[in-house]
Design a protein around this nucleic acid. Structure first.
Lengths: 211, 211
DNA sequence: ACCCCTCTAGAACGAACGCTCTATCCAGCA
DNA sequence: TGCTGGATAGAGCGTTCGTTCTAGAGGGGT
């Protein structure tokens, strides 16, 4: 299994030819990414620590070295990783058009495209991980709530910049994120981009109605 | 543990004073209800067959007698149960107001009230069960897709009856269900009714914009 | 009286779970 | 050169998992 000797900072691996797309990253980062991807697809309970360590090309010892809090701490970090990932995509989409309604439409299309590209496997990285653990693990629920809040904040700021009233922007941000969330869920289960495309059009229409 | 001797039809239990709200029901029905409730709160992987049988006051033998397909068959049936349950609530709400926009607003309020009443434990009965099992269990995914389709159908018919164009009704039904779904998810994680109440208002506004 | 069939009952199986533990490796420093 | 501490390595703990299996309970039909 031998991995790169490393000290938490990403460095090139000059001795390991075959590896996944995460090769050359620090062990800790590889573990977080593997956890995020696996929990996104299989949920918290459906993903084992040993599977994560295997997928990350790390050993069980490394996992517990970096995450002494065990599975829950790892899941919290995985959610934060998914949070940052989706926030980046959302920010890009929102800045891609001068008009906020068109920007939201573009965001929905982007989500749909990525979902299809993953063969309907990669839904919302936060939902799958946090669902079913809300009651037991408050830390996980909190991280998920913060993710949603951050995404809402991005939409909110975008609407404010476009001249929307503060209250309208706040409420629209709620519905934009929630509708995208629900539509992605349905799209994943139905294996169809349509729910997301419809959601994009309806959200654009809703936003326009506040002008 | 002794349970009611019964032949699949619900009958009164004259000998068992202390029991849950499902007492007096047939064993099979008790098992389905326990599975549905537990999976709604803990997800598919987070819920064990033994926990279900314990909660249902049934034995492992009974579970495998009624559901020889094992956990997957049981989960499929649990989703169908949640489907019928939510469909009933949705139908009631949709028929509670003469105006379809107001009816959707009422539905959102009802979902919010029930979610809060359960101490934020009972989210969508279909989502939690089906998430994380989409790839592995096609039967479960299919049952979930059918549930969403049924709910959409209820909204669709309601809009048609109110005179909306077929295409508008179809697309609005998509977004109504998806937005409620996403808002309920956010409401559960944030422990706040607000996302659902905002969703209700926005959906009413969106529907009105098609008149 | 007998059988039959549905349903209940729970012990037992191998596998996988999260986690603990000790041992080893190795770069950096004294 | 030897020490130190972060990082790696994986055997093994007790528990729980989904499932299988055999045994018995009990009412109806003949």
């Amino acid at each position: 299994m031998k991995t790169t000797p490393e000290h938490d900072s990403p460095e090139q691996d000059h001795d390991e030819p075959a590896a996944g797309p995460d090769a050359g990253l620090g062990t800790r980062e590889r573990i977080v990414r593997a956890a995020s991807r696996l929990m996104q697809r299989q949920g918290y309970e459906g993903t084992g620590i040993k599977q994560i360590s295997r997928e990350a090309n790390a050993t069980l010892g490394s996992v517990y070295h970096f995450f002494p809090g065990g599975k829950q701490e790892l899941a919290t970090e995985a959610i934060r990783h998914g949070d940052r990932e989706f926030a980046g995509m959302l920010r890009t989409a929102l800045e891609s058009r001068p008009d906020p309604a068109e920007a939201v439409l573009a965001a929905a299309g982007l989500v749909a495209a990525e979902l299809r590209a993953s063969d309907w496997l990669d839904g919302c990285p936060v939902t799958a991980t946090s669902l079913g653990t809300a009651a037991n693990a408050p830390g996980i629920r909190l991280a998920a709530a913060e993710a949603f809040e951050r995404w809402r904040g991005l939409v909110h700021d975008r609407l404010l910049a476009a001249g929307f009233a503060a209250q309208d922007a706040r409420e629209l941000a709620h519905t934009v994120i929630n509708t995208l969330e629900g539509a992605e869920l349905t799209a994943q289960i139905a294996r169809s981009e349509e729910p997301l495309l419809i959601a994009g059009r309806h959200l654009a229409r809703l936003i326009d109605s506040y002008r």
